[in-house]
Design a protein around this nucleic acid. Structure first.
Length: 301
DNA sequence: AGCCAGGCCCTCC
DNA sequence: GGAGGGCCTGGC
């Protein structure tokens, strides 16, 4: 099946490996990932995307994937609205077509709880191990994320054993909260940015940065602006100087400066930081990704 | 060896 | 309201 994005800026590789999602692998010119309970195989094909899905029919996945890749989103209008200065204009030019994926809510919560004080290769391994140990099997060697119930019953110790460290308690606490309906995550879609943020902050292990990742990647809150150490360095480098400022204040400054679609600016600044501070830990290169995934687990046994 | 990573929580001021 | 220490683990 084929997905057309004719006439729109769309950079598949950068989108898939920009640290929003940790389940994509590149094998030669093909990308395989897990989306909405399906194993997807995707490759560029002219002005479009050729894909196959399992177990769902390709045709069923078509509208879901248009949504996932936000192909009906006017990205050029967003570029215009956030182009406040030369720094951001250069970043946009460099990574034009990198999109913010519209992801599953629970998976995003879990991913960014795993991500704190970590790095992309490690997050990728932790997430994959967690899915394999506690999530349901799809086939083709891949598993779904564990549901809140599955994660809660896995328990903290089991999560520590697969290398999640102190994040294990955050994951189990949050899973229990969701499984017991102490928080209704899906209701946050219709809530305002401020209300949704306040609700997310009630979860143990979710602070301002993780909450803003969830708001941006899964809750359709385009002004969300996660400030991590890389964003912090770039904001200081480009705009604020080295004067110490609280992370929350930096976040609010950026939201005020970039406006309604500050989240897109965030994504481009974050990606730029990898080359700007090139050689730093956490900088992800294609070769590193390839190396990590050259031997999928189901082929190793 | 020691520091820090796509942070957060808790304590103390 | 913010500065500082502690936390799992892994890489340099």
């Amino acid at each position: 099946m084929r997905l057309s994005f004719q006439g729109q800026p769309f950079d598949l590789h950068t989108t898939l490996f920009s640290g929003q999602n940790f389940r994509w692998r590149k094998i030669c010119e093909r990308y395989t990932g897990v989306v909405f309970g399906n194993v997807l195989d995707v490759r560029l094909d002219g002005g479009g995307l050729a894909y196959t899905s399992y177990p769902h029919l390709d045709s069923i996945m078509l509208p879901l994937l248009r949504d996932y890749f936000s192909l009906d989103f006017d990205i050029d209008a967003v570029y215009d609205s956030i182009s406040k200065d030369n720094h951001i204009r250069v970043a946009i030019e460099r990574y034009r077509g990198m999109r913010i994926l519209r992801q599953d809510l629970w998976e995003t919560v879990v991913s960014f709880l795993c991500a704190q004080a970590s790095n992309v290769p490690r997050i990728t391994k932790n997430v994959e191990d967690m899915c394999e140990s506690f999530g349901s099997e799809i086939g083709l060697g891949r598993h779904n994320y564990p549901t809140p119930e599955q994660l809660a019953s896995a328990g903290e110790n089991a999560l520590r054993e697969i290398g999640l460290g102190y994040r294990a308690k955050f994951l189990v606490d949050t899973a229990r909260c969701v499984a017991d309906s102490e928080i209704q995550l899906t209701q946050l879609r219709t809530a305002s940015y401020d209300d949704a943020l306040a609700s997310l902050l009630m979860l143990n292990g979710v602070g301002d940065k993780v909450a803003n990742c969830i708001l941006l990647f899964a809750l359709d809150k385009p002004s969300a602006f996660p400030v991590d150490t890389w964003i912090q360095k770039m904001l200081q480098q480009w705009y604020l100087g080295q004067k110490k400022t609280g992370l929350k204040r930096m976040r609010m400054w950026a939201q005020d400066y970039f406006g309604q679609h500050a989240g897109y600016a965030n994504q481009y600044i974050f990606h730029s930081s990898r080359s700007f501070f090139g050689g730093c830990r956490g900088a992800v290169t294609t070769t590193k990704i390839k190396h990590n995934f050259s031997a999928p687990k189901h082929e190793r046994n």
